[in-house]
Amino acid sequence: MTWDEALSLFYGQQVSLNRAGRTIAAYQTDLNQFLSFAADRLGVEPEELEVARVDLRTIRAFFGLLAEKGLARKSIARKLAALRTFFKFLCREGIVTVNPVRRVASPKLGRKLPDFLYAEQVEKLMRSPVQDTVLGLRNQVLLEMLYGSGLRVSELVGLDRQDVDCEAGLVRVKGKGSKERVIPMTAPCRGAVNRYTSARHDREEALLLNNRGARLSARSVRRILDNLVEKAALECHVHPHMLRHTFATHLLDGGADLRSVQELLGHEKLSSTQIYTHLTRERLKEVYRGTHPRAKA
């Protein structure tokens, strides 16, 4: 079977598993990059490359080239994960009998602690939207949802009015892999949603609309947040996911248990949530070093 034929089957399987569009697109980019390299190395046209011809040497040469070019270890690890997933699929389907990726070691990754905002910075940001316009009220909802409920930006822009129950103080979110979870809303968030929806005179299902009356996009959220950060005079770059990091960090700082935070964030694995415990430990060390007389010395 050719590589292209195998890819078509693989992408069909990924769609049937409800993989996120961005995940499938990333697989496509990484696997096509490897295809170009492997075809050139083996001296065949890309559309003629047979999957059975791809061996361990070819795969190691590919990742060796990426390392020589200075590609970040995280990016290399992502491309390796794409190949692993692809070849596991080929083996399960009986398309190949040997998985050449099994013997390729993953690059060691230094674990970068996520950026977050301090409570006073969050308060300044929350005061930045103008409260006497529909768009200003929308921006308040945007901030309250990202920080108060820890939503991913994709989850935020996917919300419909019916997903939000202000009376119960709950929001129903469709996360990665179309998995639904229900998250509490803060009192300020409930108030912001009520003010915003009351000020609207439309019948659109989407909770957040742009200035043309269509559903707000993830790109627009980033642009709006940049403007609000500038207005709040925060001396740092703030991206939407940073407010999710801040949500988790402040919960743990306040005494929340790790399992509860995992459920609120919608993390499938506890290890994804544990990075925030490292973050809070680093904060404690920083406070200790800055305040204890012996530590200062």
Rank of each mutant, 00 (worst) to 15 (best):
residue 183 I to H: 04
residue 160 D to T: 01
residue 174 K to M: 13
residue 142 L to H: 06
residue 173 V to A: 01
residue 177 G to K: 13
residue 205 E to M: 03
residue 200 R to E: 10
residue 216 L to H: 00
residue 137 L to D: 04
residue 212 R to C: 09
residue 161 R to A: 10
residue 177 G to V: 05
residue 163 D to M: 13
residue 187 A to V: 15
residue 186 T to A: 15
residue 185 M to W: 07
residue 163 D to Q: 15
residue 151 L to P: 06
residue 197 T to W: 12
residue 200 R to H: 09
residue 187 A to D: 12
residue 210 N to T: 03
residue 198 S to N: 12
residue 200 R to K: 12
residue 188 P to E: 05
residue 138 R to M: 15
residue 178 S to R: 12
residue 175 G to Q: 09
residue 138 R to V: 04
residue 201 H to R: 11
residue 176 K to M: 13
residue 169 G to V: 05
residue 152 R to W: 10
residue 180 E to N: 06
residue 200 R to M: 08
residue 210 N to Q: 15
residue 176 K to Y: 10
residue 196 Y to W: 09
residue 193 V to W: 00
residue 193 V to T: 03
residue 169 G to L: 13
residue 191 G to D: 10
residue 139 N to Y: 01
residue 183 I to Q: 00
residue 171 V to N: 02
residue 177 G to H: 07
residue 195 R to A: 15
residue 201 H to W: 09
residue 172 R to D: 02
residue 186 T to F: 04
residue 162 Q to H: 14
residue 207 L to R: 05
residue 201 H to K: 15
residue 166 C to N: 07
residue 149 S to N: 04
residue 206 A to D: 03
residue 151 L to W: 08
residue 178 S to K: 15
residue 185 M to V: 08
residue 142 L to R: 02
residue 169 G to S: 11
residue 180 E to P: 07
residue 194 N to A: 14
residue 143 L to A: 14
residue 140 Q to F: 06
residue 183 I to T: 08
residue 166 C to A: 12
residue 173 V to N: 04
residue 215 R to C: 03
residue 168 A to T: 08
residue 144 E to W: 01
residue 144 E to I: 09
residue 137 L to I: 08
residue 217 S to M: 07
residue 219 R to K: 13
residue 165 D to V: 00
residue 207 L to V: 09
residue 211 N to I: 06
residue 200 R to S: 05
residue 179 K to H: 08
residue 188 P to D: 05
residue 200 R to Q: 06
residue 175 G to H: 14
residue 192 A to I: 00
residue 202 D to M: 10
residue 175 G to P: 07
residue 167 E to D: 09
residue 142 L to K: 02
residue 153 V to A: 11
residue 181 R to N: 10
residue 163 D to N: 15
residue 149 S to R: 03
